[in-house]
């Protein structure tokens, strides 16, 4: 079967739509989680959703909707534990983590369900998505993206500085719970794509990648969504082509592709930050002593290749640990 024929198949097109929407929704809400330093919240909710899926499978109702309900309950519970108790956010997460996973395995065991049906949700199965699933995914993903972009100013203020937000008259608790609920919904959206155990990767890794190169929140969330779409659609395509040779699951491919983006962006981020620091103008102020440097055979100039940094009304040339400023016929050490 040629690639063109393969991508024309309905199940493949459904998979592409689901991947695209997941790639948009997960990083959008993930940015707010990372901003609040709750990067692992998606993972915690993912584990809780395992219980929901298991309940859905056992009771023969929709596993997706059961997962949505249980995940939202779990997310709100995490938020309450975090707010009420003196417990740290990460401790609250850990409690839910293990409870959710253990509950899911226990419940699915009661019914004698084989592990394979639960596995579809644990590790994703993009290619078995039904038409109904795609519609549910679309509705939920659009809701997540719409709310997290539309309410971005409020959510940003609350995540940035809760106390200030409260004095600004924002309903901080409402927005915190909203973020938790949106995270829960996007977990269930991403469940079929990358699976519950890898769901957090799509919420966090594109954000971590984006912030290597960005300086503002808006570009971070935008770049994270672009990277999320690239990773999820690209991962699906890569997995499809690779499946001519071997069995390649799309879920892990998507996550690994997202991580590969990070690996590329990381050194670029380090390099660009270092460069920005080097080129920052020196603070104004007089140089305490007139310190002429020793013989200087080299003439500095715009094209001499040395780093030129503005300083007051002139330019210092930085090389080999020196800052040289032209002074008459010689160079001063600044």
């Amino acid at each position: 079967m040629s690639p063109a024929e393969l991508f024309a198949l309905p199940f493949m097109q459904r998979a592409l739509i689901a991947a695209l929407l997941t790639g948009l929704a997960a990083p959008a809400i993930g940015t707010f989680l990372v901003q609040r330093r709750l990067a692992l919240m998606g993972d915690g909710i993912g584990h809780v959703a395992v219980t929901g899926v298991a309940i859905g499978l056992v009771t023969n109702t929709s596993p997706t909707w059961a997962a949505v309900v249980v995940a939202i309950l779990g997310a709100v519970l995490i938020e309450v534990i975090r707010e009420r108790g003196q417990t740290n956010g990460d401790v609250a997460l850990a409690l839910l983590f293990y409870g959710g996973l253990a509950g899911g395995i226990l419940v699915s065991g009661i019914d004698g369900q084989s592990a394979s049906s639960l596995n579809r949700y644990l590790f994703g199965s993009l290619t078995t998505i039904s038409a109904d699933d795609v519609i549910v995914t679309m509705v939920l993903a659009i809701a997540v993206v719409g709310l997290s972009v539309g309410l971005a100013p409020q959510l940003f203020a609350v995540a940035q500085d809760q106390e200030f937000a409260r004095v600004a008259g924002l309903q901080v608790r409402f927005y915190n719970v909203l973020v938790a609920m949106l995270a829960a919904v996007s977990v269930t959206v991403a469940m079929r794509t990358v699976g519950l155990l890898l769901v957090s990767a799509l919420m966090v890794v594109p954000v971590a990648t984006a912030q290597q190169l960005t300086r503002s929140f808006r570009t971070t969330i935008g770049a994270a969504m672009v990277l999320g779409v690239f990773a999820s659609v690209g991962g699906l395509v890569v997995a499809t082509f690779a499946s001519y040779q071997a069995t390649v699951a799309p879920g892990p491919t998507i996550v690994l592709l997202a991580l590969a983006c990070y690996v590329v962006a990381w050194p670029i981020g380090i390099w660009s930050r270092r460069r920005a620091r080097l080129r920052e103008p020196f603070p104004d102020g007089t140089v305490p002593l007139h310190e002429a440097c020793d013989e200087h055979p080299h003439a500095h100039g715009p094209d001499c290749g040395h780093l030129a940094v503005p300083h007051d009304d002139h330019v210092d040339y930085v090389h080999d640990g020196h800052r040289h400023a032209e002074h008459g016929a010689h160079y001063d050490e600044h």
Partner: peptide, 17 residues
């Protein structure tokens, strides 16, 4: 915070009132 925010964005948050 955990995600970079520009000076303008932080100041703009004060306008939410």
């Amino acid at each position: 915070a955990g995600v970079p925010a520009s000076v303008w964005e932080v100041v703009a948050a004060g306008r939410l009132t």
